[in-house]
């Protein structure tokens, strides 16, 4: 029998070979997944075990930093991180989504748009400390916004803008042309088509990008140190909400602050071992905050999908 004949046996051999390849690839995949999962789990469990005695103490969450490790808490870092993330999200999400939409739906497809797109993608890979230096020169000295929550929010917003822009573009691009033609065919103009049909359909993808961006921002220490965040702060910014009219104030924007990664870094670099316990506990809280943000995004995405399908 010539080897070029297609017979039942020759086909069966091909199937068997394909099946072996599948098993090998699946094994490699599971192995890699296990390495990654185990590492993450090990880090988390190690932090949890190291920081346990502080994590179970309610004072840890309500106290300010202190010279005495047993009394030091993370309240100022938690509040600082929350407010900075709020500013970051409020600035980066609308800007990033608008820029992504413009590039994908409105901009003429020419070399200039291509150049901008390549640059935006590259910006996502620029080291975060560069953004810190930029912000120090531009915001702190140039605009005189000082070493404040506003500056930190702006800096981290710059940092994650490319991520959100790229994610928005990908999400918008993946919307089938059918859907746009259906909308245009009804007489909808561009903005109606984008607002009523393209944007809602792209929302899950955009949301993923927003979360990836915010999760990156929440863990950044370098750019925030560069713009001059404090490492020891014993008071909270003014509350954004108040009982008296006008019920809302923006004084907190110009308040000095610290964030979780800086607090952690500060404690890690102390010689006393007790502070290292605090650092580990802070790490756990930071990871939980990030995971909570991801969980929220998944929840919103599932909700949106249920509404759409």
């Amino acid at each position: 029998m010539a080897t070029t004949d297609i017979t039942h046996d020759s086909l069966a051999r091909i199937i068997a070979a394909n099946r072996r390849t599948d098993v090998v690839m699946a094994s490699i995949g599971i192995l890699v997944l296990m390495v990654a999962g185990t590492l993450l789990g090990a880090v988390f469990i190690d932090l949890l075990a190291s920081g346990w005695e502080r994590l179970v103490n309610p004072d840890f969450y309500t106290n300010f930093p202190s010279r005495r490790p047993a009394q030091a808490g993370i309240i100022s870092a938690v509040v600082g991180t929350s407010l900075v993330m709020l500013v970051t999200a409020v600035i980066a999400v609308p800007l990033g989504v608008a820029a992504g939409l413009y590039l994908e739906e409105y901009a003429a497809k020419n070399w200039l748009t291509d150049l901008i797109e390549i640059n935006v993608s590259n910006l996502a890979g620029v080291p975060s400390i560069i953004y810190g230096l930029l912000a120090l020169g531009l915001f702190v000295y140039g605009f005189g916004t000082g070493e404040t929550i506003l500056t930190a929010g702006l800096t981290l917003a710059l940092l994650i803008l490319p991520v959100i822009i790229v994610a928005t573009r990908e999400a918008v691009r993946s919307i089938p042309q059918d859907l746009r033609e259906a909308a245009y065919g009804l007489g909808a103009d561009k903005w109606q088509t984008v607002r009523l049909y393209v944007l809602p359909a792209a929302r899950p993808g955009i949301l993923t990008g927003v979360i990836v961006g915010l999760a990156r921002a929440i863990g950044e220490a370098a750019p925030v140190i560069t713009i001059g965040a404090l490492t020891f702060i014993a008071f909270l910014p003014p509350a954004p909400l108040q009982i008296e009219s006008p019920f809302i104030n923006f004084d907190w924007l110009t308040s000095p602050f610290t964030v979780m990664p800086i607090q952690m870094f500060n404690w890690v670099s102390r010689p006393q071992a007790e502070f290292h316990i605090n650092a580990a506990a802070t790490g756990v809280v930071l990871m939980v905050m990030t995971l909570a943000m991801n969980a929220l995004a998944i929840y919103i995405r599932l909700r949106l999908r249920r509404l759409q399908r």
């Binding site: 089938p176 033609e181 259906a182 245009y184 065919g185 007489g187 009523l196 359909a201 759409q308 399908r309």
Partner: peptide
């Protein structure tokens, strides 16, 4: 396009309710 409607080769309803699909052209107007 506001005066001349179109139906395409592949059914392309919007990812919305049945009512909102039919109402879409009216809302645009």
């Amino acid at each position: 396009r506001l005066r001349i409607g179109m139906v395409f080769q592949k059914p392309n309803p919007f990812p919305k309710s049945i009512f909102e699909n039919v109402a879409a052209g009216l809302r645009v107007r």
